[in-house]
Design a protein around this nucleic acid. Structure first.
Lengths: 267, 267
DNA sequence: ATAGCATATATCCTAAATGCATATAAGTCA
DNA sequence: TGACTTATATGCATTTAGGATATATGCTAT
């Protein structure tokens, strides 16, 4: 295993506290050669998810270049030299998927040397959540996009790769995107227990049953209705709007809204 | 045998199905110029933790180079071009901290453009856990190492930076290591609820009270003894050894051992 | 207009988990 | 041997989740 020591550096970037104190340090930084060692490329991948018709779905793009030409994969892009990882993920989501201003969070960094046949690419995987009413967004030009059904072959939070189905048939995903997708589901299932994350997958106003269906789609199992209801109402995160759904062919349910400003307060 | 638990089994996918099939694709790969764009450096940082005398502690190293010369920080190193991130973290932990074969897991990737004044460095933060009996390990040559007390100013799992105290006084940490350390504590507190992680901080045989003290040190609050005891025994993860602690000046407690092979089974 | 329908909401009951108190056990130490 | 300290066992009250049943409400068909 090649042990490299402190590589590189050339420009002094905006610094951080005592980062550039003494003259000695300034001199060191000025003489730092950033190009001495070969470096991996750094990319981001974004799994944009939604729940539609009780199914968990992910937005895939069809690759127009090698490698994996023609395969479907997550939305990906490279991190610019002066760009934060968060910004790169948001930019990629906007440029490749046409969505912005949505919930977006870092997941895990994938860096197996052979994961990209071109060269060494380390990818920081992210996931994003939108509600299905935004599904109709037009695709950014030049992007072939499809919403695929997410299917996992494991139960609970055990983990493993996930499959993406288009028109019912599983697609071989590019790179290690099946692993990423599986990890997204695993993370979401865990997070559902303590974080108000279901709301990101619903429009502003929703019924308790809508919320339950989102949870069920993510967890992959049915939930007890009464218990779910009680838990949600007791959480203090829901505000009743006083309005009810209409034209549903049965007793209409109350519409709720997520209290955004509630401090989650450590447990 | 390093008992590492890494979530995604993202093994090298040299030939992920159609990854490098056609002649066209081979031609494309051959012509790919890996050095066309300036790239960030990729590093790893490892927070090696233990619980000793009921205190959560982290192993720090004193920097011998700019930037942050003389400051204390986590164990860090650069990722080799052909080296996986996991391997880089393990190598760094061994070379800079003198520990190997311990629990080591990826945490989060930090990539703010200004976080390293030398140049753009993206760092994949990790945390590792050892039990205090291994504390006496000699430091690798040339490394100034100290165990510091970890102190957080927030409660529960709210999150925020953490302080590291040497001889009772807080040390200004290099780079964004205070943020990393805080995130480690936050992650550990969350993980304690569902993962058998406390065992990594204990020797093979331990009492229930030992385990409770580990949990309390991580959570930063006292736990109900009976309840903790019941929960742990009910978890099915503990095997009674039939032996008891000795020379403790009171009734000796039973020694338990962690059942490593128990499948955690999704909830 | 009204009866039937489907689903929302309320109420009650049971099981399980937790916190707390008390009693007993098993070592050490004077 | 007895005092002391902490481990372990047992009982009980409180809380919380799961499940069943009963009632409410708006829609639809007649």
């Amino acid at each position: 295993m090649p042990r490299r020591r402190n590589p590189p550096a050339a420009k002094a970037a905006p610094a951080n506290q005592a980062g550039k104190g003494s003259a000695a340090e300034r001199a060191f930084l000025a003489g730092y050669d950033a190009a001495r060692f070969p470096r991996p490329s750094v990319a981001v991948d974004v799994a944009l998810l939604t729940v539609d018709e009780r199914r968990l779905r992910v937005l895939l793009t069809q690759r127009t270049e090698h490698p994996f030409l023609g395969h479907w994969g997550l939305l990906g892009g490279f991190v610019g030299f002066d760009e934060s990882i968060d910004a790169a993920a948001a930019r990629t989501l906007k440029a490749k998927g046409g969505h912005s201003g949505v919930f977006l969070e870092q997941l895990y960094t994938f860096g197996a040397p052979g994961r990209d046949p071109r060269t060494r690419v380390i990818s920081v995987a992210h996931y994003a959540l939108v509600h299905p009413e935004t599904l109709a967004q037009p695709a950014p030009q030049g992007q072939a996009l499809r919403w695929a059904d997410v299917q996992v072959s494991w139960a609970g939070e055990r983990g493993g790769p996930a499959a993406a189905l288009i028109d019912g048939s599983p697609q071989p995903l590019a790179f290690d995107h099946a692993e990423m997708l599986g990890l997204v589901v695993q993370r979401l299932r865990g997070k559902l227990n303590y974080a108000p994350i279901g709301f990101e997958l619903l429009p502003r106003d929703f019924t308790l049953f809508d919320l339950q269906q989102v949870h069920e789609a993510i967890l992959g199992r049915a939930l007890n209705k009464d218990s779910f209801r009680r838990r949600m109402l007791a959480s203090g995160l829901l505000a009743a709007t006083g309005r009810k759904e209409t034209a549903v062919g049965h007793r209409p349910a109350e519409l709720y809204r997520f209290k955004r400003n509630t401090r989650t307060a450590g447990r």
